[in-house]
């Protein structure tokens, strides 16, 4: 986040007061989330709304955070503390297809390393990286609750299970 050993407080990340804009449908969707909770507890909707921001803007960006803080009448730092806690929020831009491969025990022993190796060599990146064209990001993630069909991965919100090299190839071709 911060540059190495800044000498002054002004060397922090660029922060703007810019505010994201959303279509009336999206705003309506956001309201429908807030409506689930008691009126004085609208902060409860923070996580669902962060997902909306992420879907609409690709990641949890500064204008999106500003919008949410205003929308829920909380501080930007309140949004930040929550957003940074959860692993599914992208605090940096990611590729259009976010490939998340489960690396926990069942998947690991059922062949995750081969799958990861194959995908990475095919895309020419390491886990945690994004391809130069911004199309794919590959991440290794912890158990996705699909151990019975290991190895598995999630692209966006979609589960892909019982993976084999052939299956992965087919999937990547489809995305391409």
């Amino acid at each position: 986040m911060a540059a190495a050993t800044p000498t002054s407080y002004t060397d922090q990340i660029e922060y703007t007061n810019e505010m994201a804009e959303f279509s009336p449908e999206v705003v309506e969707e956001m309201r429908s989330h807030v409506a689930k909770y008691p009126p004085e507890r609208s902060r409860s909707a923070l996580i669902p709304l962060l997902f909306v921001i992420q879907r609409e803007r690709g990641w949890i960006d500064n204008p999106g955070v500003n919008y949410l803080a205003k929308f829920l009448n909380i501080e930007v730092t309140d949004v930040w503390e929550t957003a940074t806690f959860y692993s599914m929020f992208n605090l940096k831009p990611v590729g259009r297809h976010h490939i998340q491969i489960c690396k926990t025990l069942s998947c690991k022993i059922m062949g995750e390393p081969e799958i990861t190796g194959h995908i990475c060599s095919k895309l020419g990146i390491k886990p945690g990286e994004t391809t130069a064209d911004g199309k794919y990001t590959v991440s290794l993630v912890e158990c996705l609750g699909s151990c019975g069909t290991a190895p598995m991965m999630q692209i966006g919100f979609d589960f892909h299970e019982d993976l084999t090299i052939e299956k992965v190839d087919g999937m990547l071709d489809e995305l391409a």
């Binding site: 689930k36 997902f51 599914m88």
Partner: peptide
């Protein structure tokens, strides 16, 4: 009854 989502935290 409402649905609510977490975001990746065991």
């Amino acid at each position: 009854i409402h649905t609510h989502t977490g975001a990746g935290a065991y």
